[in-house]
Amino acid sequence: MMKKRFELASKSEVLSPFRKELRQLLGQAGWEKKSTEGILLAVDEALTNIIRHAYGGQPGTIVVLFEDDPAKTEIILEDLGKKFDPTTVPPPELPRQKPGGLGVHFIKTIMDRLVYDEAFKEGNRLHMIKLKSKNPKGEEVL
């Protein structure tokens, strides 16, 4: 089991350096390049949503918990901003010919499970899970 905790300032400058760290961790967790790039994109989109919508461009802190075990990699994002549950966002009509509105679609497409923690009252806590293997029916193996 590998665990790591990050504390990020809610500003766009943090995205690129954080991706570098996460890319390294995903490599250590055994993900090949394509999956690594996918997970990076999903996490990046979720962080961007926190910066833009939860904190609305105002200063704030984002906690990122990275947890890896033989069955899955889980990334948990916590913020103390405005409530925003991406799991309730309806899928966009594709191809979307208007700018914007694709971030949550990317997250849902890439990750296997997305859990919004209703019990986290102070802000938002989002669990993003990528399974390492699936059974023949494509269902989760936990």
């Binding site: 990076l40 961007t48 971030g103 990317f106």
Partner: peptide, 13 residues
Amino acid sequence: DYMDSSGIATFVE
């Protein structure tokens, strides 16, 4: 070597 939905939105616009 990396692009997210902000990049896509920029091109769509």
